[in-house]
Amino acid sequence: MRFSIYRYNPETDNKPYMQDFEVVVNAGMMLRDALLNIKEQDESFTFRHSCGEGVCGSDALNINGTNGLACITPISPLKEPVEVRPLPGRPVIRDLVVDMTQFYHQYRSVKPYLIVHDPEPEEEYRQSPEEREKLDGLYECILCGCCSTACPSFWWNPDKFRGPAALLQSYRFIADSRDQATAQRLEELEGPYRLFRCHTIMNCTNVCPKELNPTKAIGEIKKIMLKNNT
């Protein structure tokens, strides 16, 4: 099977180029297996990967134009040559490795941690199964970056728009019955950019490898804001 891979080494290349590789494929092979085979052919080929089962979020890539995780992307249905590029819109460090600093910065900006003002009880906080269920589809995010780097609003304003991944996390804490900082979280998302640059294009939801729905989470935040303002 033929693969066309984005290559760029800042020490030797003036500009990026696409390079073709042939990989002998077998049944059940994932894209990560093919990339490891390519690395065997050319040791200088560089990409991030680790767990191999879609939980660590290291190997998010642009595969035939769509973002996804290499380790859980089967290659058999992919159109040939399989075009593999780094995540769009981020500065490329080398080959498929991009600089995710801004993405992580936006994540940190939404205060992605539980905030409680009351004194802590000796036991666990009580949370009903129904309250806990509200976190399903939110807490499972692996910070792979597929969503935010597929979002045109994030491409244009990565410094001002929080992006779908960070906003999903923001809602994860707003939705948590234990958290006591909802007002503060909402206030910090005011203004034309941080939240409201989302134009419901839904690329984020379409590409999420964990089948989460950032668009819906963003919608929920907007709904609460609207309710509070009326």
Partner: peptide, 14 residues
Amino acid sequence: EHAGVPFSRLDNGK
């Protein structure tokens, strides 16, 4: 749990 870990819950909230 106090640090935010989303443990699954029993009917009594524990």
